[in-house]
């Protein structure tokens, strides 16, 4: 086996082995100390819950993913559009950028209760997902649009490119790697935003997302369902990250150094 192949096998095998060890330890601890399931359920019990509650959990997963997805799409379009506006129109940047920063640094968990008062719950949850997800898109796109090679800008001036051509043929493609990096962060954050808002809505909420399930199961001491829902949330986050990484790789693989594997 060559070095790289061996390396790749280890990269897959080692985390799996760690997982197996952790689950085994968990199981042994539960058995050894005879911990009751309403304190800490065994892995087998969590697995069984995952299967038995599948219809319910699946329904909740769809709700949360749908909100996270909508929040992400709005954040992507909103963030890119705002960054382009800032880039083209300095007055807009000076007027609005500080507020974008304030929105970002204010913890969303503190904003969520207010939003829940003024907006119907689904909309409030969506707004939270959007608020946390849009800033990295805005910040990264702004950085990308501003870091275009000066000589290329000169070249475009030499050929009398219009503002629109400059944006479409130079600035946006040049910013693409940064935009994609922003989107990758935004994907994870939109899920976090949706979860935070659902938790804030708590049992008062009429929602049925996964985070709501976790809160509700907590009140009912259904600990194994909490674990099952948490597991699904983690998997959803990983899936979002993988999809966005694949998209990024696909778009950049021919031309950007970040996506090209260098042979040593």
């Amino acid at each position: 086996m060559t070095r790289t192949k061996k390396d790749r096998a280890l990269r897959i095998a080692l985390p799996l082995a760690m997982l197996a060890l952790a689950v085994l330890a968990w199981d042994l601890v539960v058995r050894a100390f005879a911990i009751p399931p309403y304190v800490l359920p065994s892995p087998a019990r969590v697995g069984a819950t995952l299967v038995n509650d599948a219809p319910l959990l699946w329904q909740s997963l769809k709700v949360t993913l749908s909100i996270a997805f909508q929040g992400f799409v709005l954040a992507a379009f909103g963030g890119i559009a705002l960054a382009v506006t800032f880039n083209q129109w300095r007055i807009a940047e000076y007027s609005l950028y500080p507020y974008a920063v304030i929105l970002q640094v204010t913890p969303v968990i503190a904003i969520a209760p207010l939003l829940l008062i003024y907006l119907p719950q689904p909309l409030a949850v969506l707004a939270c997902a959007w608020i946390v997800a849009f800033f990295p898109v805005l910040a990264n796109t702004t950085l990308g649009l501003n870091s275009v090679d000066h000589n290329l800008v000169s070249l475009f001036h030499l050929y009398k490119a219009s503002r629109w051509q400059m944006l479409l043929h130079l600035k946006l493609p040049a910013a693409l790697p940064q935009i994609l990096a922003g989107l990758r962060i935004a994907g994870g954050l939109s899920l976090i935003g949706a979860v935070v808002a659902e938790i804030a809505a708590g049992s008062a909420g009429a929602g049925s997302g996964l985070a709501y399930r976790i809160a509700e199961s907590g009140y009912r001491l259904n600990i194994s369902r909490m674990f099952a829902a948490l597991l699904l949330l983690s998997l959803a986050g990983v899936a979002i990250f993988l999809v966005l990484s694949a998209l990024s790789h696909m778009l950049l693989r021919r031309w950007h150094d970040s996506a090209v594997r260098q042979e040593r």
Binding site: L152, Y159, Q165, L176
Partner: peptide
Amino acid sequence: LPWTTMAGNVALPFTLG
């Protein structure tokens, strides 16, 4: 332009009119 081919790069003046 790193995101386009040699032909696309050479054609840039025409792309820009």
